[in-house]
Simulated scan of single mutants.
Amino acid sequence: MDRSRIALVVPALNEGTTIARVVASAGRHASVVVVDDGSTDATATLACEAGAIVVSHGVNRGYDAALNTGFAEAASRGFAAVVTLDADGQHDPSLVTQFIAALEDGADVVLGVRNKRPRFAEHLFGLYTRLRFGIADPLCGLKGYRIDVYRALGHFDSYGSVGTELMLFAARRGLRIMQVPFRVGYRTDAPRFGRRLSANHRILRAMVISWGRA
C-alpha cells in the first residue's frame, strides 16, 4: 500500500502544547489530517504549520463527530486507509508504522491494545468485546481501517459509540482484524474530549447500544 494513500486522522481539542510535535512525527509515515474540534487555542494554526491537512469545526462537537469529519475528509481525498491517533502525545506516532504494516499485510482493521485502561467502564466494555469478538481493547483511540470498511458502513459513528461502531461493524461481518499491543504514554492535564460528561456513563451507554446491535 502506497504510504501517500494512508491518512492519519487526529481529532484535536485545545491541544496546542502537543499537536505540532504529533503532526511532525506522524507526518514522517503518512499524510496527517487534523480535525480541530472547536479549539479556542492555536491548535489549528500549529497543526497547519507543522504540515497537516486541517479541517475545523466552528464549535466543539465531540470526539465521535471529529472522527466522522476526519474519515469523510480522508474518503473525499481518495485515501486507501485511515489510522486514528490521539493529539495529546499518549500514542507514540512511530507506532503507526506497525498499523500500516498490518494493513499492508491484508488486515481490514488494526486495533491498538493499551497496557492500561484507567476507567471501570473500559474494562467492562473490553470484557464484552473480548468474549464476543476476541477484541481486547475496544476503546483505544489508536486504530487502523481500510477505507472500504468505512464506505461499507457509510459513516464512522452514528450513536456516540466512543470510537467503536466501525470496529464492531467489521467484527460482526467477520473481516480480518489484527491487534497491536503497546505502552500508552502520559498526559499531564485533563483529557479534552468528554470533559463535561461522565466518561464511564458515555462508555456504558455505548456498550449497551452496541450490545443491542449484536
Rank of each mutant, 00 (worst) to 15 (best):
A80G: 14
Y63E: 02
V162P: 00
G134E: 09
L168D: 04
L95I: 11
A75Y: 12
A75N: 13
R61Y: 03
G89H: 01
A65L: 04
G78W: 12
V110L: 03
L166I: 07
F169W: 15
G58V: 00
Q98Y: 11
F169H: 14
L111Y: 00
V59W: 00
V113D: 07
N115A: 12
Q98E: 15
Q90S: 13
A170Q: 07
L124M: 13
R151C: 06
A74I: 08
Y159I: 07
G163K: 05
S161T: 11
T164C: 14
M167Q: 13
F125G: 00
L95Q: 15
V109M: 02
N68A: 09
G70Y: 03
Q90C: 15
V113W: 05
P138H: 07
R77G: 13
T129P: 08
G160T: 11
Q98K: 14
D108N: 13
L131G: 02
V83M: 10
K116F: 12
R114T: 02
D64M: 07
V162C: 15
N115R: 12
V110H: 02
G126Q: 04
L131F: 07
P93N: 13
G134H: 03
F125N: 01
A80P: 03
A66F: 01
L111T: 10
E104D: 15
A75K: 13
T69C: 15
D157S: 03
A87E: 06
F120I: 12
K143V: 09
G58E: 13
E165T: 03
L131C: 09
N68H: 07
A121I: 04
Y150P: 05
A136P: 02
V59E: 14
D86N: 15
H155T: 14
R114H: 01
C140W: 02
D157K: 06
P138W: 11
D137I: 08
T97D: 13
D108G: 04
Y128E: 11
A170M: 11
V109P: 06
F125K: 00
Q98C: 07
G89S: 09
S94A: 15
M167G: 00
F71I: 08
A80V: 01
